[in-house]
Write a protein that binds this DNA or RNA. Structure first.
Lengths: 183, 183
DNA sequence: GGCCGTCCAGTACGGTCGTACAGGACATAC
DNA sequence: GTATGTCCTGTACGACCGTACTGGACGGCC
């Protein structure tokens, strides 16, 4: 029980790291297994479909995102601040999160009926909260720019403490939305 | 000659589009072939290693990036503006470009001795021009945030005219660097 | 002792990938 | 008409992927 729990968490940790570095598709079960010192069948034993590994890694972030969406935000700035906090807090899995969020609907149906597809249903809601309904061209662009900045800014600064990343990221995120001519 | 040239450009166009949507690794030769109405062997005939397809697609952008790096920029703002112009102009291939640029060095050696790895040598130069040498934590984060905003902002607004994207993108890019407390 | 469930390795299977090779349709040159 | 080169298909190969199945090592329980 204890030992098995250990390997489970070790697998999760290794997978989280590899997924963050290479992305979901580019990380094989054999890679994860090698990082933990097991065979790929052992990994498959603990997480039967590969999707479940990602689902379990994503699970706490997904829950928090749901709570974040349900919470009322007075202004868009408030929502942006909450979004930045979310991205920084879950920066180790945000690449995985974004892969589901921004993936093409046409390609790779995320495995037919997979649980990972759940996140994709968030997308419209997140994006609507961010840019409003039926946004203009410029607003839509800024929405994606913000999401891109959030992902890369957090992923590429894993070595920095969370507080520092959040402060800097918040500044950049607000700057994107700010009307430079005074708004 | 004419017909063969046609299929070559048609393959390039389809590949450019699919690479932009799904990324390099997630796009198979069969996918590209299906989009053009050929078999994957026909595609392989025109572009012998798959790398060459990406290399040929990336080639003009790579040349322009070299020119951009060689050109003298008075201020960092000037360089940022040039960078935004580059990203918008080559938005159809910027995802491919970024894949090479930001890829992990450890994983997937981009095919041993591949030509695609050339772009990766740009990275240090681009990043240094962007954030200076030995940048602080916040500056480094903003650099990556800018690159992320550039990529997503341009890729996800393919339906908008170039001028509009450039104007909005330039605004966001400058905002990221702006010191909100007046700088 | 025997029994059973957990944890993991070994093996094998179907599928997809990029690629190599052989052959055919077709136009052009001689 | 025959030869030559280009353009493309069909087939096949090895490598890798995720997964199913079998079996063995180990520990707790009766």
């Amino acid at each position: 029980m204890t030992t098995a729990d250990d390997t489970r968490t070790r697998i999760l940790a290794a997978a989280r790291e590899l997924f963050a570095e290479r992305g979901y598709a580019a990380t094989s079960l054999a890679d994860i297994a090698a990082a933990v010192g097991l065979t790929k069948t052992a990994v498959a034993y603990h997480f039967h479909p590969k999707d479940r590994l990602a689902a379990e890694i994503l699970s706490p972030a997904a829950d928090d995102m749901l709570a974040l969406l349900d919470a009322g935000h007075e202004s868009r700035d408030d929502f942006v601040e909450a979004l930045v906090g979310f991205a920084v807090r879950y920066r180790s899995v945000i690449r995985l999160f974004m892969e589901d969020l921004a993936g093409d609907d046409s390609v790779s149906p995320v495995s037919p009926g997979s649980e990972r597809a759940v996140i994709r249903t968030y997308r419209d809601e997140i994006f609507t909260k961010l840019v409003g309904e039926d946004p203009g061209a410029e607003t839509r662009l800024k929405g994606w720019a913000l999401l891109g900045a959030l992902q890369w800014g957090t992923v590429k600064t894993m070595d920095l403490p969370e507080d520092q990343v959040r402060a800097a990221m918040l500044e950049s995120a607000r700057a994107i939305w700010q009307d430079p001519r005074g708004g």
